Amino acid sequence: MTAFATSLTTMPPADSGHRFDADRHWAASLELGFEPRDGVTRLTPCRHRGPLRVQRPFHPEGRDGVCHVYLLHPPGGLVSGDALNIEVGVQGGARALLTTPAANKLYRADSHAVAWRQHTRLVVADGGELEWLPQETLAFDGSRGAQSTEIALDGDARCLGWEVMALGRPASSLPFSTGCIEQRFRLTRYGRPLWLERQPLDPAHPRFRGRWGQGGASVQATLWAVGLNDEAGAVEALREGLGASPRWAVTVRHGVLLLRYLGQECCEAWALCEAAWRVLRPRLLGREAHPPRIWRT
């Protein structure tokens, strides 16, 4: 077993308290629920532990529109031993959009090479709608951790989301040359797996440079959309609206539309995802795109 795997599997339980050795573990959790009340999507419950918070819910699209919520992590990033757990539940008839006020940062591991962990679980009931649109994640050289996203849908639940990851800081001549990050995605409907993926981002692995894998790209993005009535039409609309480029591609399998980006520019990846969201939102949710105000600050 590698040192990276050992650091993940031997991490002490959440109630172990703060430490400053190889067994350090600082936990934070956030549980959000959305339900319709009198035609308005309400945030309830909202429970947190540690440095994870939300601002008050907003309804910028009207009282009967989507409930916008900003997830706040005051430390601004993950360090060795951090363990973040986010759970979101959307009931039938509720409509929620979640984003973050700034980029998430994954800092260099400490001298013990202790890993961090981040787990996100999104549950959408029959008739519910969820948009998961966090700002980009910036991984510093030497970062070590595991990031997992689980999406559980029922009935005709609809979900659109993305993950934008920038590795290293090439502009500062600090590429992602050491460390290891593992990404996992799991999307199910009625418990049946529709999209399962595991991706190790390890500069020491051949796939990191190989043309058959990462290809040396320092920025990657994945966008998903589930619940489209006309999947083929959505793919064509994306290809027409986004313009041809060797850095992105789109496909549909088992009812899951996936758009991928591999390149060197974080701004380009973000712009691509936002443009795709503008194309897909009316087709998926029947509403024009309404960018959260925090994106313009």
Rank of each mutant, 00 (worst) to 15 (best):
T2Q: 05
F4Q: 01
T6S: 13
M11F: 01
P12W: 07
P13C: 12
G17N: 07
R19I: 07
F20N: 08
D21S: 11
A22Q: 12
W26F: 08
A27H: 13
E35Q: 11
P36D: 06
R42V: 15
L43M: 15
T44Q: 11
R47W: 03
G50D: 10
P51L: 12
R53H: 14
P57K: 05
P57I: 15
H59K: 10
R63D: 15
V66D: 08
H68C: 14
H68L: 15
V69Q: 09
Y70C: 14
L72D: 12
H73L: 10
S80C: 08
G81R: 01
G81K: 03
L84V: 07
N85H: 12
N85I: 03
V88A: 06
V90A: 02
Q91A: 15
R95E: 06
A96R: 00
L97H: 05
L98I: 08
P101A: 11
P101C: 07
Y107W: 04
Y107A: 00
Y107G: 04
H112T: 08
H112M: 02
W116Q: 01
R117D: 04
Q118K: 03
H119D: 14
H119Y: 09
T120H: 12
R121F: 10
V124I: 14
V124M: 09
D126W: 12
E129N: 13
E129Q: 15
L133I: 07
P134S: 06
Q135V: 12
Q135M: 15
T137G: 14
F140C: 11
D141R: 00
D141W: 00
D141L: 09
D141P: 10
S143Q: 01
G145N: 05
A146M: 13
S148A: 15
A152R: 08
A152M: 07
G155T: 02
A157L: 06
R158A: 13
M165V: 14
A166R: 06
P170K: 04
S172D: 03
P175A: 06
S177N: 05
T178E: 13
G179P: 02
C180D: 01
Q183H: 12
F185M: 11
R186D: 14
W195D: 10
E197N: 13
P203C: 09
G210L: 07
W212H: 08
W212S: 14
S218L: 02
V219N: 01
A221E: 05
W224M: 11
D230T: 05
A232F: 04
E236Y: 01
A237Q: 09
A237R: 09
R239E: 13
E240P: 00
E240F: 07
G241L: 07
R247V: 02
V250A: 15
Y261A: 00
L262F: 02
G263T: 10
Q264C: 09
Q264N: 04
E265W: 04
A271V: 05
W277F: 10
R278L: 01
E288C: 08
A289K: 02
P292W: 02
R293F: 08
R293Y: 00
W295E: 03
